[in-house]
Design a protein around this nucleic acid. Structure first.
Lengths: 153, 153
DNA sequence: TATAATTATCTCGAATTCGAGATAATGTGC
DNA sequence: GCACATTATCTCGAATTCGAGATAATTATA
């Protein structure tokens, strides 16, 4: 049956897509994480600093929403960054359940130094595609990702 | 300076690509892992079983190469799968350093049952793109991934 | 207002992964 | 055949993440 065969074939292609996607990201991540590690941070710590750097102070809970980690993990990461003096906890005066994570001067100085390097490293890692190919890839990945999340475009 | 500006722009696009790629895979993985968890396995366990299922018995060390995990982690995963009776360790008679991981009948039966379901689940998760879009995406991701790994095409 | 539901953060223990190093077997160069 | 490097597996402890549940504050409801 032709329709059957096509369905089976398409399942194989989808599986392949999943595998290739996983491996491509793994290769990139490996190099990005080496880069981040050279700054003395792990990927989650970097992601939290990046968020505060670009969006300003955030309630701890919001950090988890954006960086996509569990609340218990945020506590752990924020603890570590606080010990390293890159951020501070500041209670919200209006809502005493809320604690803000606020970058310190040291944190901002660190990001001023490493964020451009980080962007440049990613640029070099992704240089296998030209600008238009990247733009197209972004479009297709968004379509794929939104659909997987259950959001139709 | 125009060249400068373009470089900065392209760095932003590359960063965006990295973010979109990470998020797309995260959305897909989340659903794939739910699927796998419903079979009572975690992603690494499933990957090991999938390897043995498609490629037959493997020296434990080879498993780590293919599934891309550290040797100490393989020991851990193989221990767990052995306890669950999905595979056995068999010493190699020719080289006494080597231990093979061999699927048991239970393991094969499990994979006979769940692997088609798994493929079908991925097919549904990836249905945001049509067949040609998937094929193109695979090509582009391979190019990106190989380059990131330092392999020119 | 008292009660219940929700929200934000944290604590705790378990699962998973890693890296460094131990152990044992094999291969290599002299 | 012996010393040395290499290879395969495992042990151990540390790092990271999660989920369940505790605590406390706020909001909604009767």
């Amino acid at each position: 049956m032709d329709t059957q065969d096509n369905k089976l074939l398409e399942e194989d292609i989808s599986l392949k897509l999943f595998v290739v996607l996983s491996r491509a990201l793994q290769s990139i991540k490996k190099r990005v994480e080496e880069d981040i590690k050279s700054f003395g941070l792990n990927p989650t710590e970097f992601a939290v600093l990046e968020l505060l750097y670009s969006k300003g102070a955030q309630p701890i809970q919001k950090i988890g929403d954006k960086v996509l980690i569990a609340s218990s993990s945020i506590t752990y990461v924020v603890d570590k960054l606080e010990k390293k003096k890159f951020l501070e906890r500041k209670p919200c005066p209006k809502d005493r359940r809320i604690t803000y994570a606020v970058m310190t001067t040291e944190g901002t100085e660190l990001m001023n130094e490493i964020f451009p390097k980080h962007k440049h490293a990613i640029q070099e890692i992704c240089a296998g595609l030209d600008l238009n190919e990247k733009k197209n890839l972004i479009q297709q990945l968004k379509k794929l990702g939104y659909y997987a999340q259950g959001i139709e475009l």
